[in-house]
C-alpha cells in the first residue's frame, strides 16, 4: 500500500484513549476497527491520517452482554459474532436480519458494530435496525464518558458528534419485550456484497390491539440514516389499519431525500421507501396480531 501512516497498537482501551487524547487535528489520527471500510479509504487516499490506533482486538471492546433488560455490545463486536451468539434471538430480529445481509461472510468476520456506525455511511446496514431498537452509544475519552441516543449521533453526511479524542466503546439498547416485533429489509442490486439502495427497519409494540411504540428508520435515502418521527407519531396510540399504514409509508417517502447515483435514481428510491415501509409495518403488525390470538 502506498499510503503511509504509523500504526499504534495499545494493549487496552485506556491506552487507546490516552493516544486519542493527544490528537489535535481530527484528520491526523483515526481509530482502526475491522478496517473493512478504512483500509479501502486509505488505499484510495480518501483519508490520509498520519496515525492509526488499532482498537479492533481490544478485549475491553469485545463481548456481548445481556441483563438488566439490556442488550449491550462492545464496539469491536463483529457482525459474525452477533450472528453466532447463542442468545441472538433476544437482540431484535431487525438487527439479525441486517447482519445476515451485511456484505459477505469474510467482511462480516472482520467488520465491527462501532465501525459500521463511525464510518458514517448513510448506507450502513446496522444503523437502521439499531435506530429502530432505540440504541444508545457510549463515547469515551481519557477524561470520562458520555452516552447519547444513536438518533442524536449523526450531524450530517459522514459527520457526527464524536470528538476526535473520543472512542465509540459500546452500543446498548433495551431488550425487545414480548409483544414487540422488528424487521429489516435491504434493497440492493444483488444479494452479495452490494451497497444498499434502500434500507428500512421498523419496530412495533402492541398492547390490547393498540400500537404503543413505533419506530421507522431509513438507510441510503438521506445524508444520514434517520428515523421518520412524523410517521411514527401517526402510528402510536392507534390500531394499525391498512389506511393508516399506507399514510405512514407515504410520510416516510416524503421525508426521504434520496439522490440519483449509479445504483438507482432518487425517484425509484423514494417509491421503494413507500413500498418497503408499508410492507414491513404490515408484516410486523400482523405478526403481533397473530400473537394476540394464537
Amino acid at each position: 500500500m502506498y499510503a503511509e501512516f504509523d500504526l499504534l497498537t495499545p494493549a487496552a482501551v485506556g491506552g487507546a484513549l490516552d493516544e486519542l487524547a493527544k490528537v489535535e487535528n481530527e484528520e491526523d489520527c483515526m481509530p482502526l476497527g475491522g478496517g473493512t471500510n478504512l483500509v479501502v479509504d486509505l488505499r484510495a487516499r480518501a483519508v490520509a491520517p498520519k496515525v492509526l490506533i488499532s482498537v479492533g482486538r481490544l478485549s475491553g471492546l469485545r463481548g456481548i452482554e445481556l441483563g438488566e433488560g439490556r442488550v449491550s455490545m462492545g464496539g469491536a463486536v463483529t457482525v459474525s459474532e452477533i450472528l453466532r451468539h447463542p442468545e441472538r434471538s433476544r437482540f431484535g430480529p431487525a438487527l439479525i436480519g441486517a447482519a445476515q445481509v451485511f456484505a459477505g461472510q469474510m467482511v462480516r468476520n472482520t467488520a465491527t458494530i462501532a465501525g459500521n456506525i463511525c464510518c458514517g455511511s448513510p448506507a450502513a446496514d446496522l444503523v437502521p435496525p439499531l435506530l429502530a431498537l432505540d440504541a444508545v452509544v457510549r463515547l469515551e475519552c481519557s477524561a470520562g464518558s458520555r452516552e447519547l441516543p444513536l438518533a442524536d449521533y449523526f450531524t450530517g453526511y459522514k459527520s457526527s458528534v464524536r470528538k476526535p479524542n473520543e472512542l465509540l466503546t459500546r452500543v446498548w439498547w433495551p431488550e425487545p419485550p414480548a409483544g414487540s416485533a422488528s424487521l429489516f429489509y435491504k434493497l440492493a442490486r444483488r444479494k452479495g456484497d452490494a451497497i444498499t439502495v434502500v434500507g428500512v427497519a421498523v419496530s412495533l409494540a402492541r398492547e390490547n390491539g393498540i400500537c404503543t411504540r413505533a419506530r421507522i428508520a431509513l438507510g441510503a435515502v438521506a445524508p444520514v440514516v434517520e428515523r421518520v418521527r412524523p410517521a411514527e407519531a401517526m402510528l402510536e396510540g392507534n390500531a394499525l389499519e391498512p389506511d393508516l399504514i399506507e399514510a405512514a409509508a407515504r410520510a416516510a417517502a416524503q421525508q426521504s431525500s434520496p439522490i440519483d447515483d449509479v445504483r438507482a435514481s432518487g425517484k425509484y428510491r423514494r417509491q421503494q421507501v413507500f413500498v418497503l415501509v408499508r410492507r414491513l409495518l404490515s408484516r410486523a403488525w400482523r405478526s403481533l396480531s397473530e400473537g394476540d390470538h394464537p
Partner: peptide, 27 residues
Amino acid sequence: CGIGECGACTVHIDGRPVLACLELAVA
C-alpha cells in the same frame, strides 16, 4: 480487486475466512 469485493484473497485467520487485502500485516 484490492477493495474487499471479489474474495480472491481469502485466507483463514484463526479458522475464519477473511480478506487478506483488507488486513494490515501487523494485525
